[in-house]
Design a protein around this nucleic acid. Structure first.
Lengths: 252, 252
DNA sequence: ACCAGATGTTCGGCTTGCCGTACATTATTC
DNA sequence: GAATAATGTACGGCAAGCCGAACATCTGGT
């Protein structure tokens, strides 16, 4: 009963594992789940029963395992918690990604929604703060990578000097490129300016708390250029090009 | 078997509660422990047995409960994790202290030591970064207290303008007051410059990873001016004035 | 000295979550 | 198409944690 959906930490782990295995390979097999979570096959069966009882997975003995719609939503949420934490550890605390992942794994079950939101906002803040946030954070990297000699602050200060100059230029050219989500390329980030009047997607974005100013990152674009995968508020989302075109953004 | 000392999350909670109750009132009674952790008295008895078995508390039926030396060390560690997390949430993420405390309570059992260290270092970094770290963080407060309108960046930038001016002055007067820990007043912070050659305390500080540059904060000083309570690396420490005199520091 | 009432303990019982072993089913290979 | 290997399941058992009810001990007022 630890979390929103009333799942135990253990069941969340199972659900997350299933979600990821289905994403990676095609089918989720009990053996793989067990291997990933380091538990025996019999334990997996037990957990599958528990998940099926809660209608999070479609399960029949000896049959393939799939997530129900409800299950997908819950699994996405768990994965999101994991990723927001990991991102924060890597991008802000300058932790190596392996440790960050392990830590996120352990902490994802215990973090309250409100705090998670803060972690997310902090990363966004850092990425867009007009006075050298990112490089300031890089300063933290120097600060803690060596033995805390105060001399490291020099390097950190050095970073910002360049920033200050650039900032002036940026201010000149502050008429940032306003465009639509459909025209961005993978890896680019932008702030939402306006959500066009599209039904389901708009509804979904609003439910996720997306407002003007929220950062969006394009993760990848299908070969044909149509389904566009974006990351927003820690969620992964797949949009049709048609839908993306209705979302006005401002490049960051 | 979640943590360093091999304690379950539940037992850590009991130990922490006992530690705090002993600190607040004089004696730790089963009833109070139960009330604090919201469990029945019978559950408390069970936990006490488990803790006694691990030699963390002195326990005999119907007798008062005290912590063993080993127990004190472990309890201090749990409390430290809690406080480092809470501090981070409050000081960096601008979370209100009640939510921060609740979150710390839940997460303290899951956080790996390495990540905790980073949280601590980040707070220290913010407090001493020569280019307006603290006020930059305050900018985050503005950023997320309102509805993410980009306009908030203005206020944030405003903050740093003042900082930049002050910084120049500071640079002039960079010959910071170098003094000793014994001469500081409650609430003041300083960076350790050198650990004098005192036996036990020096050993203890070194074990805690205190090196030149680590921040110390004086929490309070006894009426007679002698036992001085400091916070360093997230630990609370009580020093004799004699000992504090041997620790050279530089006011921040 | 004694008798409530408060506090502490023991006991049986419950759930979750794990395991190993033995059995069932599916896949693969000849 | 049958034998064998791989995989999945059922069952009994164990430990951690929690509870309530019944019993034990302590403590203060008389």
């Amino acid at each position: 009963m630890t979390n929103a959906a009333g799942l135990s930490a253990s069941l969340e782990d199972y659900l997350e594992a299933i979600f990821q295995i289905i994403r990676d390979k095609q089918a989720a097999r009990a053996k793989d789940i067990g291997k990933r979570l380091k538990v025996s096959r019999s334990s997996v069966t037990g957990a599958l029963h528990a998940l099926a009882e809660r209608e999070l997975i479609n399960y029949a003995p000896y049959d393939v395992i799939t997530l129900t719609d409800k299950g997908k939503v819950v699994a996405e949420d768990v994965v999101r918690r994991h990723e927001v934490l990991r991102d924060f550890f890597v991008k802000v605390l300058a932790v190596d990604s392996k440790s960050a992942d392990e830590a996120a794994c352990r902490m994802e079950h215990a973090i309250p929604e409100a705090i998670l939101e803060r972690f997310l906002e902090f990363v966004e803040f850092v990425e867009r703060c007009p006075r050298g946030g990112s490089s300031w954070i890089k300063g933290f990297g120097y600060y803690c990578d060596s033995d805390n000699e105060t001399g490291n602050c020099e390097r950190c200060v050095g970073l910002v000097l360049g920033d200050v100059k650039n900032r002036k230029k940026d201010d000149m050219a502050d008429t940032q490129t306003q465009t639509t989500l459909a025209e961005m390329r993978p890896g680019e980030k932008a702030a939402v300016v306006k959500l066009g009047g599209i039904g389901a997607v708009r509804r979904r974005l609003l439910d996720m708390g997306v407002t003007a100013g929220t950062l969006v990152e394009v993760e990848r674009i299908a070969p044909l250029g149509d389904p566009i995968e974006v990351k927003i508020k820690g969620y992964h989302l797949t949009l049709r090009k048609e839908e993306a075109r209705r979302i006005k953004v401002k490049t960051v």
